[in-house]
Amino acid sequence: MVDIKITRASVLKEKPASSTLVFGKSMTDHMFIADYDEGQGWHDPRIVPYGPLQIDPAAKVLHYAEEIFEGLKAYRTADGTIQLFRPLDNIARMNKSAERLCLPQIPEELALAGITELVKLERDWVPHEEGTSLYIRPFMIGTDPALGVHSSHHVQYIVIVCPVGAYYPEGLAPVKIYVESEDVRAVKGGTGMAKTGGNYAASLRAGDRAEKQGYSQVLWLDGVHRKYIEEVGAMNVMFKVNGKILTPDLNGSVLDGITRRSCIQLLKDWGYEVEERRISYEELFQAAEDGTLEEAWGTGTAAVVSPIGELAMEGKKVTISGNQIGELTQKLYDNLTGIQWGRLADPHNWIMKL
């Protein structure tokens, strides 16, 4: 049992109406913090009023990007129960990211307590409306107050939460994707398998270029051959080709997505053959041209699944599933969200009730 000191905010914020929720904008009244010092380990777990962090201007996180994070959600079911979806998987992945970024391993019990106790305290912030949830952002930062490239001896683990609206308020509309051939997101041996801010900063330029051309996201290619599919935007990606499911393998530069894992399990439950392997963009465009590319979608915590209706690269465009959400994409979305919001059975014990 983790003994957490709680200091309550003296003034509580006005909670926003669900209809006005914008992702990542409305933070709650409190946050969780725990400190790590080399030789002492993790200590002083506490929930305090939400507010600015006080760190030294020379802190490692500001100069050398020694930072990792996770993303998960709390859902309110029809009977008012609040539940989490696969939180232990997020914690295990955070520790893998920590190992890659030379940050300390955090005990599962402490990391989970920071999430669950904060959500319990902020339970009134978990919205009731269909499709809404409480987004949870655990993160870890190196705070050594000294310049010089080496791992931090002083670290903080922090959890913040915010209510979010339905990702698709008007339904799941397919998005247009541009295959990025200049910039790369990550390379094998780098930090692509870790959930760290630098990966996302490296994606911004290509994302801006794609948006100016009318595309929602970029489809990333590998950094060596510049031909094999890796991720789409900030999500994993899957394709239904001639009845079979294809998805890039976890080769060291692709994030091991929790939603990706969940989709693969459901697809196998339903009898689909799932191939995790290298997939070239030429293979995809050829499948689109010969009619065997039946559906495509991204997978991630925020959107669950995001249908892809068009792929474009260097002036060449192909339409997928008639630019409509595919039957299997819709089924995945309905089943995953059904489990998350407690409308469907949870055969794999993915849900943790609070």
Rank of each mutant, 00 (worst) to 15 (best):
M235W: 01
I279S: 07
S10W: 00
I136S: 03
A210S: 08
P87T: 10
K25S: 14
V2I: 15
I339H: 07
A78D: 15
A302V: 08
N323M: 05
V61D: 01
D334C: 03
E273G: 14
A9C: 09
T319K: 14
V187I: 13
V119P: 14
N323A: 00
T259F: 10
I115R: 01
A74K: 03
A312V: 12
P347Y: 06
S133N: 08
Q83G: 15
Y64D: 06
A210T: 03
S216W: 03
L221T: 01
A98F: 00
M238W: 11
T191M: 10
Y215N: 04
V187K: 11
G326M: 10
E289N: 14
A92C: 01
I82H: 00
L250H: 04
A113I: 09
I320N: 13
V22C: 04
N199K: 05
Y50M: 15
F139R: 03
F69G: 02
C263E: 12
R46L: 04
Y215Q: 04
G243S: 11
L332T: 13
E122Y: 09
G300C: 09
E66Y: 00
I229L: 14
A234E: 06
D56S: 15
A186R: 13
Y135S: 10
I351S: 02
G165D: 05
Q40K: 15
E295S: 10
R100W: 07
P127M: 00
E129V: 02
E66P: 00
L204N: 13
G24L: 00
R86V: 06
A296L: 09
V305F: 02
I47W: 05
Y64G: 01
G114S: 12
Y228W: 03
D256L: 01
V179H: 06
G192C: 01
G131L: 07
A58P: 00
G252D: 11
